[in-house]
Amino acid sequence: MNRPKPNRPKYYPHADYRGDYLSRRDLLKRALLLGGASAAGLYLAYAPEDRPWSRRDFSGLRGMPEETPFQLPDFRVAPADPAVAVGIGRGGSPREMLLKALDALGGLGRFVQPGDVVLIKPNVAFDRSPNLGATTNPALIDTLVRLLLVDARAAEVRVADNPIESPADCFAKSGIGAAAEQAGGRVYLPDANAFEPLYTPGAKLIEQWAFFKRPFKDVTKVIGVAPAKDHNLCHASLGIKNWYGLLGGRRNQFHQDIHEIVSDLSIMIRPTLSIVDGTRVLMEGGPTGGDPANVRDGDAILVGLDPVATDAWAYEHLLLRPGRLPDYLYMAEQKGSGMINYAGRIRVVT
């Protein structure tokens, strides 16, 4: 019995040794713990909403998911000759026509510097084979990717689109997936995590809308490559309408005001180059096509710095439509995306 006598307070007659009762220190520790927890809980629940770490939500709106939209930079590059807004190459294979059109603007090297990360946005909206004219010509994508990687020495070339149908099937059947990958580019398919809200100042319908952001990470140059197609609702699907493919969410609502949305698209993104592929022009039955009899060889590839002028020329000379241009071009001009009157601003190289 050498154990020390416990310092036993008179409230604990049953205690045998030190560990059996709640000492003052224990009591203090416990009180502090409980007090602290209660105070923290009360603060979190009741502190006014503007205080730091406050979790109070009186109106019920604080708990709603917050969307932090991002903004796209301006991808445009000043041209060598400001008088030339659209370069048109005619006669020859797609590669030859593309080179002619690029030469008309001063060459690809003027726009794409070594080390650039370039995003190509083709039209891969449907699982159509390339001869049906509903999607971009894969030979053009192949040429463009190779030019960018080899001649312009871009660091990386990405090819992306958000099709209406199954992305893997559309890229496969249109031949663009294989063309892009064989040429050394990388295909980005959309999935649930690839979209984020984009803020477009000045847009009427898509001031903030889900946008296919993933391929745009670290991108320095953007090139749109659109086929020239008839479109039942807005009369033509050319360079500007091509950017529709980057929208996510329930974008089918916009058909209720189709000209407004297409003109909004012209300010949503300011691409480096707008290419309109006139090798297979879908004259009727667009935008899905499906009848090869409706496709004609327009024998032209346009590379434009002014998307409005590019579309205007394409409407008149590729789709061969006389008369008034589609409304969205006038609205795009009003929004400052370009000028419809292309007289004197185009250079045709045959």
Partner: peptide, 18 residues
């Protein structure tokens, strides 16, 4: 040996049946 055209309509059929 995935060939996407395998699961597409051959071009001859597209043209002949336009």
């Amino acid at each position: 040996d995935y060939d996407p055209t395998e699961r597409d309509l051959p071009i001859e059929l597209q043209i002949s049946n336009a």
